[in-house]
Design a binder for these strands. Structure first.
Lengths: 153, 153
DNA sequence: CGTGAAATATGTATCGT
DNA sequence: ACGATACATATTTCACG
């Protein structure tokens, strides 16, 4: 199980993992070896999925975020699964949520411009005979994007 | 400007920044010092926003994702701004997209259970007199969550 | 879990193309 | 201007108490 120090380590790492083990150890009040042992254990136990660099989106030319709600013609398992698969495989789709209710999926799509978005719609949405309808919400600003989760304490 | 090697470095780091500079250098075909110089330059020029650990969501007890669409009573700047501020300040709100059309905001909300979600709704949605209506799409599964962006080449 | 020593990586300076 | 080699510094990692 996780004690307070484990949680502080994980919380620190999910906010900033660029610090050295020495710095991390100091911030949680442990010696570097003791801290490293915990980090390795937390890694091995699967608490840490991966470590990634978050790039500044604006630095690579213009881009747009779209929130896309998709309704399928049926709730059959294979229909849902087939759509999920095509969404997951699309590089434009950054996030895919399967939801309950009228709508079946919500996608967060990132594209450089509108033509790219149209191409995506053709390839993934219109091309699927089980796609009944979809609605696009064009984002004019991503006000918050946070990858951290609540680790308790 | 960014050449092919810079893009390969950034792409590698946004997929996995846990590797050492020595490994990174080898993967892009440079000597460690040459690679390090580029990484520092890319950092200083603001291409890398931050480095974070992505934690495995299931490891910290149950949780739910909600997609919440919010419509405000008016498009006045101060109304929008006030809502955005309250969304950004809420720890349950992991993402906030300001969108065009009928809906004004789309939130991605993460909570441990339904009572927590109700508490969030009371505190952030119902408490705001400019909140006209909102719709909650309950996610039964997050099929994809990807933080990478297209760096070209 | 902490201390100290060995292995490894990061960071700097210099040289060469 | 950029990369490679060589060297100095710092960190990681292991053995022991």
């Amino acid at each position: 199980m996780l004690d307070r120090i484990d949680r502080r380590i994980l919380d620190q790492l999910q906010r900033d993992c660029s610090l050295t083990n020495v710095q991390l150890a100091e911030s949680v009040g442990l010696s570097p070896p003791a801290c490293l042992k915990r980090v390795k254990r937390l890694n091995d136990q699967g608490y840490i999925d991966k470590k990634v660099a978050i790039l500044a989106p604006g630095s690579f030319g213009p881009y747009l975020h779209m929130v896309v709600e998709v309704e399928l013609t049926s709730d059959q398992r294979h229909v849902n699964h087939a759509f999920a698969k095509s969404a997951i495989e699309s590089k434009e789709v950054k996030q895919c949520y399967q939801v309950t209710g009228e709508v079946d999926f919500v996608l967060i799509v990132m594209v450089p411009d509108m033509p790219s978005y149209e191409a995506f719609c053709e390839r993934v949405l219109y091309a699927n005979p089980d796609m009944k309808k979809f609605r696009t919400l064009i984002s004019i600003r991503r006000q918050k994007f946070e990858t951290t989760i609540d680790v308790g304490e």
